[in-house]
Design a protein around this nucleic acid. Sequence first.
DNA 1: GCAACTGTGTTGATTAATGAACAGTCGCAG
DNA 2: CTGCGACTGTTCATTAATCAACACAGTTGC
Lengths: 187, 187
Amino acid sequence: MGSVDRRILKTREAIKKAFFELMAQKDFESITVQLISERANLNRGTFYLHYLDKFDLLDKCIEEQFNELLRVCAAQGHDQTHVPTFESLLSTTEYFEEHFLFYSCMLNSKGMPSFRDRMHQLMVEGIRDQLNMDDINKGLNKEILVQFMASAIVGIVEWWIYNKMPVPASELARELWALLERNQIHK
Amino acid sequence: MGSVDRRILKTREAIKKAFFELMAQKDFESITVQLISERANLNRGTFYLHYLDKFDLLDKCIEEQFNELLRVCAAQGHDQTHVPTFESLLSTTEYFEEHFLFYSCMLNSKGMPSFRDRMHQLMVEGIRDQLNMDDINKGLNKEILVQFMASAIVGIVEWWIYNKMPVPASELARELWALLERNQIHK
DNA sequence: GCAACTGTGTTGATTAATGAACAGTCGCAG
DNA sequence: CTGCGACTGTTCATTAATCAACACAGTTGC
């Protein structure tokens, strides 16, 4: 799959770059396809060769970002189960740090109420697969614990991003690790 | 003439950018068309649609840079004669400061003996047009004075660039102004 | 109301960029 | 010497990007 025409990759990169730059300046609804095309320095028609409209572009950007996130989360677990280790947790907080701009835009922007939901859903599915119901979790409803943890984790990330990362990624990872430990999400 | 196809401008920019980045790393002779194309992220064939070879590219880059230099030098003199003012002199030293990387590459590189000559020639022509032979210059051979000043000025610039700009642009401009004053190049 | 704008999404003819070939030159190690 | 790898300069068919045009939908302001 490395055989996509160079021009296509370059064009898509330029569009996404322009889009993110604009997202950092103004809110989603006031961004137009025209603006994106101008900033990306390409013809407006070219935009429509790759995306249906700006909503489709946003969708694909989020999709891509989430795939990257999942890749980082699972970077350790290879053919093992995807139960997190402290290392994978640290990679993940560092990933958020690195993509601060993106998540900051998405979580802050009033025009993006759906983003938080999608992230929450992603987390629910991730945790549902990983949670083991032994020992201290016996007698609890699993789905309730899943929802509880997902909301908590998304909330923490949201807080961290929204407050411009008031603690370093490493500390956040340590704190999260302790919280996961207490709730039996890891080994 | 703003009606050149976008793709052409983008491609040429990418090629020049890649070329300058490589010039900052290695000397001219060890740079290949292949390397430039890879770094610019375009097909090698595309390179030959715009330039004959790497020498032609270098030539056009120098030409372009010199045009920019002339534009800055003459920025003041509009429909007046191009006799320099202190302001235009300052713009010029600031121009060199801004394009430090380019001139540093060109003047340092052993593979570029011709560059100093071209710059010298540019200066000779510029001065020849501006020098007024009144007052204290009476009785002197004009062409000798031109050559004298051109060498002196190029030498100063060379020294300044070569030694990584040991004094700020503003000071260099002041010093040069004093030297030009003494030699009646300005009003 | 409706005229002037601004942005949309689509069209078609044209042109530039692409990748994959090619034969040729050059330096160099076996 | 000789084959080998790296780079050159050029070709060709294919594909993507371009520009200018289009009809259309919403907003704004007179």
